Computed example of a mutant assay.
Amino acid sequence: MMKYILSILTLMIAIGASAQTDMQHTPKGALYKVFTNSTNARVKDGDIITFQYIQKTDKDSVLYSTYVSGQPGRAQIHPSQNVGDMMEIFPLLTVNDSALVKLPTDSIFKGHEDQRPPFFPKGSNLNFTIKILKAQTVDEFKADLVQAEITGSAKYIADHKLNLQTTPSGLKYVITQASTKPKPVKGDTVYVNYTGKNLDDKVFDSDIEADAKAAGLQQPGRTYEPLQFVIGAGGIIAGWDEGMQLLNEGSKAIFVIPSKLAYGEPGYNGIPPFSTLVFNIELVKVVHAKHVAAAPAKKPAAKKHVYKKKATTTKN
């Protein structure tokens, strides 16, 4: 039995050594092995790739997995700046290719050894198993995001059975608590309670303490009180500026705000690009500005000729 176990161990060591010697080197020192042999066109400079990956130590401890998180990685291909960016590897692959990549930690932490974690000793590797799902041009990538936003918004509205009105700009809303008090206009100051969510119902911000705590938001030092701003002053997203003018003081509503009226293509502070946002809104108070009425137009006066007095000079 011991002889059999030793034979198995010897075979495993031989396979491991073979896998290591089968790997190729990039100019910056990464090791890689492509497991597939796809005939698709290779990833090229400027492409945006979507890929799955598992990140491990040399001892096979999983550090991160997109399969577990449910969020594939994305990167735009550009010339490699360092071994850790894997930009030497991606252009060697095609869509549906899988590969093993070993990045030397001595190169990754060169110049900042103080940041090297203990599970990456000198001579070790950061290991990636990657699979390329998509390679798109920037325009194709944006078109996909736009379509995903439209589809996701429609699904959210249907799943939550929201009977929404839509303004010409694309803002969707429903008033959940009516009021007969006046509506604000541009220049008025409003005080608003709100809770903001993504289309997955994950709360990303709230000025209501109970909602923030229920969502597990970490907002140390925050004072939970209505948000104050002036309508039309440019300090708030367009969907709010428009939406507040649809509400009466004291009313509540749900806003479904498309990205073009929110944070658009760039996204903001953890909000991804092209994100439709959902807000539960309460218009607590309106402070009306003093709006000066326009003076009535005057009837044009009869045209008069004005003559200037001719200047004279005095002779000495």
Score class of each variant (00 low, 15 high):
P184H: 13
S18L: 03
T137N: 03
V190D: 04
H25W: 12
G29T: 13
P118R: 13
A311M: 06
V101K: 07
G270I: 06
I208R: 10
L63W: 04
A30H: 11
G170P: 09
T223E: 09
A301G: 09
T223V: 15
F90H: 02
Q165I: 07
R116D: 10
I49V: 08
A238Q: 12
L133S: 02
K298E: 10
K202S: 00
D144A: 07
T151K: 15
L63M: 13
F90P: 02
Q71D: 13
G84H: 02
A178V: 00
T129Y: 15
V68Q: 13
L63F: 07
R116N: 03
Q81H: 11
G234C: 09
P118Q: 15
L11V: 11
V292I: 15
D201S: 08
A178T: 12
D144Y: 03
D85R: 00
P104R: 00
I54P: 00
G235I: 03
P258S: 12
P104H: 12
A295N: 06
L261W: 06
I89E: 01
S153C: 06
S153P: 06
G267C: 04
D139Y: 02
R42S: 10
N269G: 00
F119P: 01
V286K: 07
L93K: 04
G250P: 14
D159F: 09
I257Y: 09
R42Y: 05
K308Y: 05
H25D: 15
A295H: 08
S259R: 00
S98G: 01
F128S: 03
G29E: 11
F274G: 04
L93T: 04
T105P: 00
D47H: 11
D188G: 03
V62R: 07
A143R: 05
K309T: 14
T314R: 13
P272D: 01
K131S: 05
N269Q: 15
Y191S: 15
T176L: 09
L31S: 08
M2E: 10
H291L: 03
V292L: 12
P266A: 05
V286F: 03
I77R: 01
E113R: 11
F109H: 01
E249R: 04
F279W: 11
V256Y: 08
V287M: 13
K303P: 09
T223K: 12
D22W: 14
V185T: 15
S169A: 12
Q177H: 07
G29F: 08
K290W: 11
P300E: 10
Y191F: 15
E282G: 03
S124K: 01
L227S: 14
A154D: 13
L283S: 10
G221I: 06
P296N: 09
Q177N: 07
K172M: 14
Q245R: 12
G84L: 03
V203H: 00
Q52R: 05
N40H: 13
G270C: 11
R116Q: 01
Y224F: 14
A30C: 00
A233C: 08
V34H: 01
A233I: 02
P121F: 10
Q228N: 11
K197L: 12
K110P: 11
I175K: 09
Q52A: 06
P91S: 01
V62T: 14
V284W: 12
L171G: 04
K122T: 06
A289C: 12
S98E: 15
I237T: 11
G234P: 01
Q81F: 02
K134Q: 13
Y156K: 11
M87C: 07
